[in-house]
Amino acid sequence: MNLLVCFKIYSDLTKIKLDDLEISKEMGVDTHFLPNTINCFDESSLEFAIRLSEKNSSIKKSALTICKEAANPTLNSLLALGYEDVVRIKAEEENLRFNPENVANNIVNYITLNHQDIILIGKESPLSNNAATAQLVSNKLNCPLISSVIDIKLKDDKSIYVQVENNNSIYEQEVKLPCVLSMGNAVITRLRMPTLRERMKNKSRQIEDFDFNHFENRIFEQPYQIYKPNRNRQGLIYKFNGDEDIEKFLEYELSQRINE
């Protein structure tokens, strides 16, 4: 059984200072100086794949990303963690922003040449989000898509059970393979780290390069305006204490606002 995790490495926006928030010429945020991180939904998928393969040795797990050179440490870690294939499609960020069709077509190109039974794709991404890649891949491969998956269990070599979170309810369903799973707020959130010994053992293994093909963006508009939102908030410190002061607070603050 072949399992492919499609994952995204992006600049960690939690590490940006407000002073460094600059709008780039391409209508994006300049992030070139930020460290990388794996999209949290994809991180779940990468760990799920390892756990599933630990339970069933017939699973061959692959990981694919469309990225720049800086992603290499993550890809090497995946090799050390026992991914049989780690595939890199080199591309510049501007080719991918708000262009899920481009991303989906490249994923499908790979899958067409390398058959997969389970394809895991994060349901959204913190940067240049479109929440459409999994849907497009499913559509192009003509295989079922299950959204907001939070857990996966193997049934046999033709089907799996998935848990899905939908409108605050969780249900389990059986899915025939092949299928595309769009990973949601999964029960597993962190990818393990390889040990030094695992890294040494897999040191000579190579990342596989797959050619990037450019597809015209036919679905999504590129951004035409971008600005820094003003989210300044004000706080007031009251030295009130006790019931009397609560009354004062109600009188002076809340009643005034209610009247407004």
Partner: peptide
């Protein structure tokens, strides 16, 4: 340094 600099100084 892996924890801090892998985006510009891997290895």
């Amino acid at each position: 340094g892996k924890e801090h600099f892998s985006h510009f100084a891997a290895g």
